[in-house]
């Protein structure tokens, strides 16, 4: 029922690619060129043509996937073919060049192509790995719902903090202001929030209140804190602090889930920012490569 891009139609395009590679390799081994193997022999031209056609066709995927109404095949089939045939291009282009490299436009095209292909490999990895992680992280909530809940928790926390004192209020306010989810690319990858600090400040406040209390015992702060919270159930201030801690902890958990969600989504998209511009650069380099070959013919 559900199949991934790799096993589309029982690996149809894997087989196509294998056949293509095997055919090219056989021809390369069988071929006995004049001098060293290179792009200038008839086999070199043939493989070059195949490679160039493949590159243009692979680029066409960007258009195909946006043509919704009247296109042939499914986007999944195209992507499956895109992945396998794109991979086979490594071998075909190397055979085409006869493994010759140098500091020239030809090798530039080759390098760009390899960069495009390897960035694509990361894409395949990301597509197969991150979706499941994302689902698990979200736990059936939508991002919108999580963000809405964070806003609400913030508002509640601020209201509560008003009742305590200025320092707690400031800590909460600072944590709200410092919560930064999404934004630019780098921000998406490194999103984090500041609730941790606010929590620390809150716990300090509790400890302070406890130390100021007559019943206080010397010893570890943790013990004091727990003791204080446990004994002073009726105290309005401690009750408020306890609720604040609950709120901020819940917010921290949510915020880190949203941050992770954004990060995963960014990871699934970021490679395209390399893959696509480089493939356009490749198209340019390829054109230059072909023109220069014909120019010096």
């Amino acid at each position: 029922m559900h199949d991934s891009i790799l096993n589309f139609r029982s690996y149809r395009y894997l087989w196509v690619s294998i056949l293509l590679c095997a055919g090219s390799l056989t021809a390369y081994l069988w071929h006995d060129p004049i001098g060293v193997p290179n792009g200038g022999s008839w086999l070199g031209y043939t493989l070059g043509t195949i490679g160039a056609v493949l590159i243009v066709w692979l680029l066409w995927f960007g258009i195909r996937k946006r043509r919704y109404g009247r296109a042939i095949g499914t986007a999944r089939g195209w992507l499956s073919a895109h992945v396998y045939l794109g991979t086979s291009l490594i071998l075909i282009s190397l055979l085409h060049s006869g493994f010759q490299v140098g500091w020239n436009i030809h090798t530039l095209a080759l390098v760009l192509m390899l960069l495009v292909i390897f960035s694509g490999f990361f894409g395949v990895y990301a597509y197969l790995r991150y979706p499941a992680l994302m689902t698990r992280n979200r736990a059936s909530a939508t991002r919108e719902a999580m963000v809405a809940e964070i806003r609400e928790l913030d508002a509640q926390a601020l209201q509560l903090a008003d009742k305590v004192d200025k320092s707690v209020h400031d800590a909460i306010l600072r944590s709200i202001q410092n919560t930064r989810l999404g934004g630019g690319l780098w921000a998406q990858l490194t999103a984090k929030d500041d609730s941790g600090q606010a929590l620390t400040r809150l716990k300090e406040a509790v400890t302070q209140a406890a130390t100021a209390d007559k019943q206080h015992r010397s010893g570890q702060t943790m013990v004091v804190m727990v003791d204080f919270l446990a004994n002073q159930a009726n105290d309005v201030q401690s009750d408020t602090l306890r609720r604040l801690i609950d709120l901020v902890s819940r917010k921290r958990a949510l915020a880190s889930r949203v941050a992770r969600d954004i990060q995963l989504q960014a990871l699934m998209e970021i490679w395209l920012y390399i893959h696509v511009p480089l493939s356009l650069a490749l198209l340019g380099a390829l054109t230059a490569h072909i023109l220069s070959v014909f120019f010096y013919w």
């Binding site: 029922m1 559900h2 991934s4 986007a75």
Partner: peptide
Amino acid sequence: GGAACVRACPTGAAIRISPEQLPEYAYAR
């Protein structure tokens, strides 16, 4: 060619099934 949503899904995540296929689907999932 059928439902655009399914055909446009690049990774094969979207499918359409009818309830008759439900037990088979559930078993696979």
